[in-house]
Amino acid sequence: MSKIHSTAIIESGTQLDESVEVGPYAVVGVDVVIGAGTTIGSHSVIEGHTTIGRENRIGHYASIGGRPQDMKYRDEPTKLVIGDRNTIREFTTLHTGTVQDQGATSIGDDCWIMAYAHVGHDCRLGNNVIMSSNAQLAGHVIVGNHAIVGGMSGVHQFVRIGAHSMLGGASALVQDVPPFVIAAGNKAEPHGINVEGLRRRGFTPDAISALRQAYRIVYKSGLSLEEAKLQLKDLSAAGGEGDASVKAFVDFISTSQRGIIRYAAR
């Protein structure tokens, strides 16, 4: 029995594994490649130069691989690449990249992208990322592994969200969130280390303690950012279980182009 509904439109040239399931009235374009075990909900549109891996679950009315919302786009053959075992819920929009960046939007493995979320052109999502309903990423946003983007949040273009961080719901983010940090608000401000998330992922008490110390140096010491960076380098070189995590924290801050989130002037 066919796994493709009789009302679905599969354009000639599409590469679907024989185990792919396509629901009623879905449309799959000519340059699309979809791996084994993936299911596509009814009325979804998958177009453009889009490659989707194995065992993904795509909900109803999703729009995947559409043209980037960039007025400079001139029909270049840019891409959307999606990994394995992702859940992509109803009415999500995921766009291809632009030649002004790397030419591709990418989503890793085991991500959970909830209803009405938007991933703009040239975004790069790592593995195990969660985007809650109505979370919106503008173009060129980078989201690290295990990061969480809260519902109704908006993220400015070119912003980075570090690994294991969390952006609270209904937040407006215009600068980078360092890894392991909780951010929230309009505009988003730091609210400590994501302790509970780190515990769930097996970080040791010593590693969490070291990250808390790093957070205090940046956000609670009264030091300038340049002064804080010097202390952070000393902390990351001290050794111990938290050394790698603190180094990741330091490296992220040192390479930030937009600057990291700070407390607003009171």
Rank of each mutant, 00 (worst) to 15 (best):
G151V: 08
A117E: 03
S165F: 11
V143I: 13
H118S: 08
G192N: 09
V218M: 10
S153T: 14
D206Q: 15
I193W: 10
A163S: 15
P179M: 05
L211K: 02
N128W: 08
A115G: 14
K187R: 15
I193M: 09
G192Y: 03
G162A: 05
V174F: 15
Q157G: 13
V159H: 01
P178Q: 03
N194P: 09
L211N: 07
A135K: 11
R201T: 06
G150T: 12
F180E: 00
M152I: 11
R200H: 01
A135Y: 07
D176Y: 05
T204A: 06
G162R: 03
V195L: 04
C123H: 04
A207K: 07
P179A: 05
V177G: 03
G197D: 00
R160D: 07
V195R: 12
V119F: 01
D110C: 13
R201I: 03
H140G: 09
Y215M: 10
M166Y: 13
A138H: 09
L137Y: 12
V159S: 06
Q102H: 15
D110K: 05
G150P: 12
T105W: 10
G162I: 10
V129T: 03
G144I: 09
G120Y: 04
H164R: 04
S132L: 12
K187I: 14
H156Y: 14
Q157D: 06
S153I: 11
A172V: 12
G139K: 06
P205K: 02
N145Y: 00
H156L: 12
V159Q: 02
N194C: 07
G151N: 09
A147Q: 02
M131F: 08
A135W: 08
G103I: 11
L137Q: 10
G103F: 14
F203H: 02
D110P: 10
A115V: 10
G103Q: 13
A163H: 10
Q213Y: 07
Q102W: 11
L173T: 04
R199D: 01
L125G: 01
V149P: 00
V143R: 00
P190S: 07
C111S: 10
T204M: 01
V129P: 05
Q213A: 14
G150C: 11
W112F: 15
R216V: 00
H118T: 04
W112K: 15
S209M: 13
M152F: 14
V119T: 03
V141S: 07
L198I: 03
G168T: 13
D110S: 13
Y215A: 11
D206C: 00
G139A: 12
R160C: 10
H191Y: 15
S106R: 14
N145R: 06
I217V: 13
G197H: 02
L125A: 07
I193F: 04
I148D: 12
R212C: 11
I217P: 06
